[in-house]
Structures are given as structure tokens and as C-alpha cells.
């Protein structure tokens, strides 16, 4: 087991992302060990969401490589990367508001179970069986995230806290090896934040590697194994929480702007 633990799921090398003249990520290098929770923190505009967008294939990087399980993925389209086993949530909720809670999670199963257009139109028995399997596995996930009794509600109708949980549930449905959570606790009250952070721990306990962007320092310090700190698209610190907390460069980045 220990050799598996040490293996890197994700390796980011010399990553550069520019928007016009703006350098959102500049020459970024880091690794993510299998099975850990790694937090990415940094002031607003530091490039955290951009990093997620590049890793998950929303757009290709200007330069550099992203390796997932040893294979480079930076040239792949988002849906291909999802197929490989990376899933994500969005900073501003991107649920399918026109669909029910259950359907949102069922869609998350898309990477695992698919039905062709013709099989759908002719309702072949195999497509019916697949549909049943997806439904059951989605219900299981809803139970896990605590939204089982709301399965029929439209995703739009949930309060923000539950929408954020549902996004995590949808991302889990693909049974990813790496899950990227972009500010899962933003806009949540204290109780909801607590629920979200225990959920993240539970996900990690199931063996999934977690990349976590979060502003709530209590959550970050409590649950992460490692922290990567970004500022203006550059890495300014990396390591276990206690080291990062005391790093002068980090303190400077967060407080020093005024000086």
C-alpha cells in the first residue's frame, strides 16, 4: 500500500497560462500524491480557478504539461479528461437547473455508462437496464451526501448550501480518481461549512485524491495534508499546513499588500 500512497496522481510541469497580456499562471510546478487532500490557496485572482480550468481541460495551457497517472493530458478536451478520471465542481454553481436533483447526479454517471442514440430511440432492453443501474448508483450517492429525500426536487429550488453539496455529488458519480473542488464552502454558513468539510474528508477516506481550492482557513488547515500557495500565478509556498502557516512569504502575500 505504501508504494501506492507515494505515487503521484498529478504532475504539473512548467505550466503557463496567459490571457492576452495577463499571466494567470507562470511556470508552475507541483505534484499531487495519490490519496491526499491538497489545498490550493491564495488571494483572489491568484490563478486558482484558472489552474482547475487547465487541469480539467476547459482550455489548453499556453505552455507546459499536466500529467495524470503518468500520461500527459493538457491537450485533451474536457470530456476526455473526465473519462480519464478527473472530476470537478465550479466556484459559481453550474448545476443543471432544469433537471431534478437525481437527474443531476445521474448525468454525473455519463463517463461510466452510456447509451447510443439508436439504442435510446428504440429502447433496447440493454439501455433500460443501464438506466436502472445509473439510477440506483445515483440514489446511493444522494444518500451519501445527505440529499436522498430531495431527489425529486428541481436542482434550482435547493438552497445554496445544498446546491454546493449536489455539485460534489454529481462530480462523485463519475467515480473519479481525482476530484477538484473549487471553493466548496464559499457562501455557506458555519453548519453547512462543517457538513461540507466532513463530506470532503469522507470522500478522501474512500480513496479519492482531492484538490481543494478554499478561502476558509479553518477548513483548509483542518482537512488538508498539503497546501500549495499561489500569488499572481506563481507558487510562493508548498508543504504541510503548519509549515505553510508560518511561511513569511505567505504571511506577506496575505497581509503585506497593505505595506
Amino acid at each position: 500500500m505504501s508504494t501506492v500512497k507515494d505515487e503521484n496522481v498529478l504532475e504539473v510541469q512548467k505550466l503557463v497560462m496567459t490571457f492576452g497580456g495577463l499571466m494567470a499562471l507562470s511556470n508552475l510546478n507541483f505534484q499531487v500524491k495519490r490519496g491526499i487532500i491538497k489545498a490550493i490557496i491564495g488571494p483572489n485572482g491568484a490563478g486558482k480557478t484558472t489552474l482547475f480550468n487547465v487541469i480539467t481541460g476547459s482550455f489548453p495551457p499556453t505552455d507546459g504539461t499536466v500529467r495524470f497517472k503518468g500520461r500527459s493530458i493538457q491537450h485533451l478536451k474536457a470530456h476526455k479528461i473526465a473519462d480519464r478520471g478527473i472530476s470537478r465542481t465550479f466556484q459559481t454553481v453550474e448545476l443543471f437547473g432544469n433537471m431534478t436533483v437525481l437527474e443531476n447526479v445521474m448525468l454525473g454517471c455519463h463517463t461510466r455508462v452510456r447509451t447510443s442514440f439508436m439504442a435510446s430511440g428504440f429502447v433496447l432492453p440493454q439501455s433500460r437496464r443501464k438506466e436502472k443501474r445509473i439510477r440506483e448508483s445515483a440514489l446511493k450517492i444522494l444518500k451519501f451526501i445527505g440529499l436522498a429525500d430531495k431527489f425529486k426536487d428541481s436542482a434550482d429550488s435547493l438552497p445554496l448550501g445544498e446546491q454546493k453539496l449536489l455539485e460534489i455529488g454529481r462530480a462523485l458519480a463519475s467515480e473519479p480518481e481525482l476530484i477538484c473542488l473549487d471553493e466548496p464552502a464559499a457562501g455557506l454558513n458555519e453548519t453547512e461549512t462543517h457538513v461540507a468539510s466532513s463530506l470532503i474528508k469522507a470522500i478522501n477516506a474512500k480513496g479519492m485524491t482531492v484538490l481543494l481550492v478554499e478561502h476558509d482557513m479553518k477548513v483548509v488547515m483542518n482537512i488538508s495534508d498539503e497546501i500549495l500557495v499561489l500569488n499572481y500565478g506563481q507558487k510562493i509556498a508548498e508543504g504541510p499546513p503548519e509549515d505553510v502557516r508560518n511561511s513569511p512569504r505567505v504571511i506577506d502575500a496575505y497581509l503585506g499588500g497593505a505595506a
Binding site: 474536457a78 448545476l95 432544469n98 448525468l107 455508462v113
Partner: peptide, 29 residues
């Protein structure tokens, strides 16, 4: 035929695309 498509996983993917293309592709669609 079209009703069957709508009620299937294919139909679900279509409605997902309507709601959010970034989320759909992030889910492998």
C-alpha cells in the same frame, strides 16, 4: 422514437448541454 430519446440518458445529456455546457463537458459529455 424522439420521446424515447428524451427519456433516455441521451436526452439527459441534451438537457444538460442546454443548462450548462462547461458542466456537461466536465461530466464527460
Amino acid at each position: 422514437f424522439t420521446v424515447n430519446v428524451i427519456q433516455s440518458g441521451t436526452g439527459r445529456a441534451l438537457r444538460a448541454i442546454h443548462a450548462s455546457e462547461p458542466a456537461s463537458s466536465a461530466m464527460g459529455v
